[in-house]
Design a protein around this nucleic acid. Structure first.
Lengths: 211, 211
DNA sequence: CTCAAAATCCCCAATATTGGTGAGAACCGA
DNA sequence: TCGGTTCTCACCAATATTGGGGATTTTGAG
């Protein structure tokens, strides 16, 4: 049973959505509110699994409510919904830790699927939103045409340890291999990344998301 | 009618998926191949609306095929599918312009929905993948809850050099100070960041945007 | 099976880093 | 002017890293 708390200022949508969610098997609607001002209090009271939050709200905006909820109750999943496809809002919501972002949709099944997705630890993005996110992503990172680098499993493991700042000895211990083997892997990693120090390797690992 | 071209080396999955896609209303399967080597040629020949591409392929990897297709045929939608959830592969695929990324799924409806989403100009991400993408996004842009660390100007300068992978000697040269002074600054930096190696300092510098 | 890649381990030697202590000069705000 | 911080430099010693050779075993795909 997934408990849901709904914030939506549009009376019509709030009521019809409430009706639909409440009557869906596997969902339990803890409450539906037109104002997010008391969102944190309500979350504390009902401890919902998923909060469905409209971005446009009269007093406290959905983003502000999201931040407030995440600050006080990090594990509560928050699913943002909106009619607008505003890049700024999407960006803000993601940075604030939203677990999903859906556009208001005529098909109520979409809401249910999204709620289930985030409840199960995933994230749900509407296709349009996903496109925008991917585009933002590309704009940010695609400039450097990073050659695709193929590290072996062990090499990735070792590199991961290096990112954590571990020494050869600690890595050997952690991976349950000898010091000399770590040495070998490191040498191979350096060759593949075209670097010659741990710091450089770590930077490339982070930049290129190799770990 | 959405025409689909499938690349999947696993015979079983390829055939069952072919059957399902071909028998779905609104979809037309142009072809199904076990090898992406001729992907560009095949795309040119069939002009599919959507290419469903497995990441793991024998000769030409899915990522390489994706890049090749996008280079020659920018408007063709490419939907990546994989069993792995590797960050680097997801990252590479997105940067190469993938229109969607789905994990291999027991439910064939998922494939159809994804194909429709990307055909309609959206993007489709599996919940697990969406989570990873959002997390990468947050790591990049969101304010880390950094304890406020006050590095002096010189320390910042030295740390910057360290992020570039420079050695003490090179830093001394670059900052026009002696090797020993660099050493002093490094020691102070380590104390302030509570680390004891260059790698760790570099990671914190990047995470906390100290440079 | 066979072959190549991956993973494992070893040796040696040159450098680099780290940690400790100490100390003079320069700068800046009270 | 006083005191604190920053910046500068030095010396010593213990460790760690890097780069160069190997070599053997395991694994996995064809």
């Amino acid at each position: 049973m997934i408990s849901v708390l709904l914030f939506e200022d549009n009376k019509n949508l709030r009521e019809s959505l409430s009706l639909y969610l409440a009557s869906t098997d596997g969902l339990w609607l803890s409450g539906a509110y037109a104002d997010a001002t008391d969102a944190v209090k309500l979350v504390k009271k009902y401890k919902p699994d998923v909060v469905l939050m409209d971005i446009q709200m009269p007093h406290l905006s959905g983003i502000e409510a999201l931040i407030a909820i995440k600050t006080n109750n990090k594990e509560t999943k928050v699913l943002m919904q909106t009619v607008f496809e505003d890049n700024d809002k999407i960006f803000a919501a993601i940075c604030a830790g939203a677990n999903g972002y859906i556009l208001k949709n005529p098909k109520p099944e979409t809401y249910v699927q999204a709620v289930k997705d985030v409840f199960n630890g995933g994230s749900h993005l509407s296709p349009v939103v996903a496109t925008k996110v991917l585009r933002m992503f590309q704009n940010q990172f695609a400039e450097a045409e990073k050659t695709y680098i193929q590290l072996t499993k062990r090499e990735q493991e070792v590199l991961k340890c290096m990112v954590k700042g571990m020494s050869y000895k600690m890595i050997a211990d952690s991976c349950d291999i000898s010091f000399n083997t770590v040495h070998s892997h490191v040498k191979n990693i350096y060759e593949k990344l075209h670097v010659n120090s741990a710091s450089e390797a770590v930077v490339k690992a982070l930049e290129w998301r190799l770990v």
